[in-house]
Design a protein around this nucleic acid. Sequence first.
DNA 1: ACAGCGTAGGTTGCATGCATGAAGCCCGTC
DNA 2: GACGGGCTTCATGCATGCAACCTACGCTGT
Lengths: 229, 229
Amino acid sequence: MQDAFSLVPDNGAQAGLLDRIRQLVLGGEFPPGALLPEAYLAQEFEVSRTPVREALKQLQHEGLVEIRPKVGTFVREPTRREIVELFQLKESLEGLAASLMARRGEVPELAVLRRNLADSEEAVADGDKDGYARLVHEFHWAIVHGSDNRKLVEHYERLMNQLAYQRLVLRTVEHPGRIAASTQEHRSVLKMIEHKDPFGAESAMRNHVYASSREALMPESSLNPAPRN
Amino acid sequence: MQDAFSLVPDNGAQAGLLDRIRQLVLGGEFPPGALLPEAYLAQEFEVSRTPVREALKQLQHEGLVEIRPKVGTFVREPTRREIVELFQLKESLEGLAASLMARRGEVPELAVLRRNLADSEEAVADGDKDGYARLVHEFHWAIVHGSDNRKLVEHYERLMNQLAYQRLVLRTVEHPGRIAASTQEHRSVLKMIEHKDPFGAESAMRNHVYASSREALMPESSLNPAPRN
DNA sequence: ACAGCGTAGGTTGCATGCATGAAGCCCGTC
DNA sequence: GACGGGCTTCATGCATGCAACCTACGCTGT
């Protein structure tokens, strides 16, 4: 099992292992509800069960899988309620991020945002939906990083991991009208940040996230995502 | 907190292990920067190193300890910057919680808040600082739970675990004037929630958390940077 | 045909052993 | 006395083995 010369950087192997298993789950290889056998993963990634177990524990903590003791580890499918809850958190955290970034003045992330908006308009003009989706993603992450609050970034990462399933759905959901509106909202957020208006930036961001989530939650939207303040 | 009916006898042992190690860390048994030897913990809790390792990985994920590969697991002391970041998050999350709770109308947590305020005034009158600190704690948690957003609760738990060191400091920091102000702020928050005013509740809560954190961050001397190695 | 039960298969939970790597100490040298 | 290199001492990282336990399936008796 162990090769005579294992050039795995020890820890590197294990950190990468977590990522690889996460990709396996997020990639849809294992559909929600499916069992993730430790032995299989161990063989697949050529390690023993021990590091696999540790990785699965992490994934449980991230909310991606559910470990039923003495039974097995299963891919967890977020309930609709959880998705709503996660979007509420997303709104709050991204609002905070925009607010904090607006206080910082001229930071590198601002340039990213400006460029991102330009590219986004181009992508829309070209009808490049994939490119646009990627840019939307980048826009949000740039603001979160622009907050310069690492703890916020950590919590946001966790959040987005749990929403990662939905990301796939998101793209397909976007209506044409929504795309235009979304771009306009991005523009508003950027403007507020440029004006160093934390309040306005937070408000704009929250409105944007709220509108986007509403759209994302649309399909089975017989549930009411709670009225706005 | 009181929601887990964990009927897992086997995992219960291990979950208990995590809690026990966490208490060891939070209780100050091991000061920040101290090494947490797996072998010692294993012997102390009469299990093997394997479950201890898994628990330590969890604690790392919670931000309480730092695992330096091939070296050891060390109790992590948040830097002042991280504490500021965490308080910013706290403000945002508790604001969200208050907002969500305000939308819900008459919920059980409201009664808890009302009673809490009455008890708090009594504790202040009696000069019962410990009791008051506990009540403050309960007030905040009641609102977070009152949000009825489990994901929010999860993230908040994580956050508070990382701030748990500071909680101890907090009590000693409170100035007499601050206590009166804090109680008044709690009253305002409750009133806004009772009035079903999400926006007002969020605002009041954020102001309160901000004021409290300012106070907590006041004495820089109480947070010793503690050089490691 | 159906309900209840016992058993077999499979999966996890944990203990243990060994190899690897890191940090510090001792000793020799300058 | 200061400095540097090798070695000793731990502590971790992982592989493996075994036992416990859950689930499902087939068998039996009614």
